[in-house]
Amino acid sequence: MAQYAVMIFERVAPADLPPEVMQGHMDLPARIAEHGGRIVAGLGLEHPDTATSIRDDAITDGPFIETKEILGGVYVLEARDLDHALALARMTPIVDGGVEVRPLSGFQIVEDD
């Protein structure tokens, strides 16, 4: 199995997502498992207004890259190959936007000794 990051880009802020879409996100791991894949980890991000960026030691308010779509969350997906990963990522509930699927070069959870 290969690992991919699935990045969710939405024009709708995470807090404004309709309840059925939120429910869709909750149900996603089970649906993906039904189709032979696995979500290994998931990150939900607060609104980009809350982001702080550091560039050349200077601190600025806002996300590093300004886009119309908001990076709302990322999950790590295990799939057989890109075709499988794309088929699974397509199940991500989206209001107005889309997802980017990118192979992972590494994935680590750092645990305390």
Binding site: A2, R80, D81, L82, D83, A85, V101, R102, P103
Partner: peptide, 14 residues
């Protein structure tokens, strides 16, 4: 190679 594009004939629905 990196994204693991399969060396395969796609499934019937694709």
């Amino acid at each position: 190679a990196a994204a693991r594009i399969p060396y395969a004939v796609p499934t019937a629905d694709e």
